[in-house]
Simulated scan of single mutants.
Amino acid sequence: MVFKEILPQVKLRPYIKTLYFYESDSAADYDDIVFPSGTMEVIFNLGQGSWKTKKDGTFYTTPPIELWGQITKPLAIKSVGRNVMLGIRFYPHSAAYFFNESISEFNNEIVGAADVFGVSLKTLHEKLMETGGLDKRIALVEDYLCDRLRISEKRHDKIKFIGEIVNNLKTDYNREIIAVSVRNNISTRYLNMLFSQYTGLPPKLFCKINRFQHSLNLVNANDQKLTDVAYDAGYFDQSHFIREFKLFTGLTPNSFAAQASPINQFLAGN
């Protein structure tokens, strides 16, 4: 398996967390699980294989260009054949810079990104399929994203404001939402509405997912006892940590550590 993360050009760094490239080293099918990450993604499928995601007990093939909404529960996936992907991972709030819809509409959904972004994204996908070399493909994606930013300039101030709140919440998992509201002189109701509109998640759930992601990194490092992981990640106690970890993964921390795979780690959005 090849997996590379690519830092976007300077102009895009406030908006794009990372670009990434994935290529499977085998055509053998396999199953895996993706966990909540607090971020959204657009993924261009460029290989001969396909991906499937499970919904209501049935696996469905994902579109050629996938838009991943906010995932709030474990999501089963299946790789079929040899896959090649080029992905865009946004910050929690920054997908809103690139299209007009309320982000929360896509929660726990993988939809056709071309249906959201329009024919220009389909054209980009066709160019990526025709173009050889990762650097050239990255340049095409970056040019497209810069054009989309220019279209959304009128919304930038409001989205930037939500981004600042996102960063505040990320530095203190137990921060009371009401304190954020008072400090910014807005009602908690309006804050929740804006936050959900531009990130897809209410602030409280965002904090839970962000805390879970931190604990996931610590569990992957495998150099601390569970009690220490719980307190370092901001949980009240070990039982609280285990309960919430199982909510987002379907597994206890010990079970996860025993069977974690590379694909679910990078698709988790770390």
Rank of each mutant, 00 (worst) to 15 (best):
E109M: 06
N83L: 05
Q9V: 14
Y97W: 06
T171Y: 04
K122I: 03
F206K: 10
Y30H: 15
I151E: 15
Y30T: 10
D172S: 13
E105F: 06
Y22L: 12
I186H: 06
E164I: 03
R89Q: 13
S152R: 07
Q224E: 03
P14C: 11
S104F: 13
N270M: 10
V116Y: 00
L226Y: 10
I159P: 01
S26N: 02
L140A: 08
V84L: 15
K208T: 12
M40I: 07
F248D: 03
Q70L: 09
A221C: 05
G200M: 04
K208C: 13
K54W: 00
G87V: 09
S26P: 05
G250R: 01
F241C: 12
L218G: 07
F3R: 03
K208M: 14
G200P: 08
L7H: 12
N264T: 05
R189K: 12
V166Y: 02
A257T: 03
T53V: 08
S24W: 00
F98G: 03
Y60F: 13
Y30D: 14
P64K: 00
M85S: 10
M40H: 03
E109T: 01
E244L: 00
S181C: 06
P64Q: 09
Q259C: 11
R189T: 12
T199Y: 13
S215Y: 08
D31S: 10
I43M: 10
G38D: 01
